[in-house]
Computed example of a mutant assay.
Amino acid sequence: MLLKQSSCILFYSTTFCIEPELTQGIVAKILTKSVTHPHGIKVQLESGLVGRVKNIIE
């Protein structure tokens, strides 16, 4: 499935690196310029959180 703005995803927040936990949200902005990244594509959610995509839900 292709990642795009308004996609619903599960991601690891890069803000809380001490205990990373999966968070669900909607993509507002894709921050990684490449199509793939070994640690996951970096995105910003509509809530303002920034993190790396683990799984695309829809």
Rank of each mutant, 00 (worst) to 15 (best):
1 M>F: 11
1 M>S: 15
2 L>K: 15
4 K>R: 12
4 K>C: 09
5 Q>D: 13
5 Q>S: 13
5 Q>W: 03
5 Q>A: 11
6 S>F: 15
8 C>H: 15
8 C>M: 15
8 C>L: 15
9 I>C: 02
10 L>P: 00
12 Y>S: 04
13 S>N: 13
13 S>M: 06
14 T>S: 13
14 T>N: 08
15 T>K: 07
15 T>I: 10
15 T>V: 12
16 F>N: 12
16 F>W: 09
16 F>Q: 14
16 F>I: 03
17 C>S: 05
17 C>I: 01
18 I>P: 02
18 I>H: 11
18 I>N: 12
19 E>N: 13
20 P>K: 08
20 P>L: 03
21 E>Q: 11
21 E>H: 05
22 L>D: 00
23 T>L: 10
23 T>M: 05
24 Q>L: 05
24 Q>I: 09
25 G>Y: 02
25 G>H: 02
25 G>S: 04
27 V>Q: 04
27 V>N: 05
28 A>R: 14
28 A>W: 06
28 A>G: 10
28 A>D: 13
29 K>D: 05
29 K>F: 11
29 K>S: 11
31 L>Q: 06
31 L>D: 01
32 T>P: 06
33 K>Q: 14
33 K>T: 13
33 K>W: 04
34 S>W: 00
35 V>Q: 11
35 V>K: 06
36 T>G: 02
36 T>R: 08
36 T>W: 07
37 H>G: 00
38 P>E: 08
38 P>L: 07
38 P>T: 02
38 P>N: 07
39 H>V: 00
39 H>W: 00
40 G>T: 03
40 G>M: 03
41 I>G: 05
44 Q>I: 04
44 Q>S: 06
45 L>Y: 04
46 E>T: 14
46 E>P: 03
48 G>N: 11
49 L>T: 11
50 V>T: 14
51 G>D: 01
53 V>G: 05
53 V>W: 06
54 K>M: 12
54 K>R: 06
54 K>V: 11
55 N>M: 13
56 I>T: 10
56 I>G: 03
57 I>W: 00
58 E>F: 14
58 E>L: 10
